[in-house]
Amino acid sequence: MSNDQAPKDYRESLIHLEYQYTAGSATTTFLNQVKEGRLVGQACPKCQAVYVPPRGSCPRDGIATTIEVPLTDKGCIESFTVVHIPIPGNPIVPPYVCAMVRLDKANISFLHLIQGVEIDNIRIGMRIQAVWKPKEEWTHSLENIKWFAPIDEPDIDVSTLRFQAS
């Protein structure tokens, strides 16, 4: 191609996919509780590991997680990252922090936002609690929690975050 044509070389492309998502029984149960402001995990009857959000089975034992475990909205930061690059269509202005949130009594973590603290002060093991949207805005979504914010409790011992084989 000659140089005068170079700009044409870039073509606008579009990825578009429409589909129907079916939550499945474990996620349906979980999201129905989330709509009421409750976080309920499921435990494996064999290894006792508590999964939140639950997927309905224990990946280690390969059996259904039949025990419901009500959890609080408190936990700690298991891991985090500072996002500096804006994602097109994402309304959150960088820099912001995404963290793997480990709720108390849970054995796995999930991704959520951390706010209400200077980024430089965020650390693994920091105690946090959910900041909920107003009740009238609650839907079947973890976005009912706006973000997690630090609470005035001592950090937890990071070694306890390791997956405990019980």
Binding site: S13, Y21, G24
Partner: peptide
């Protein structure tokens, strides 16, 4: 069971 329509869409430029 909960169901929801999802739409995944993004534009990009490629050479």
């Amino acid at each position: 069971l909960l169901k929801a329509p999802f739409e995944l869409s993004y534009k990009y430029k490629r050479s």
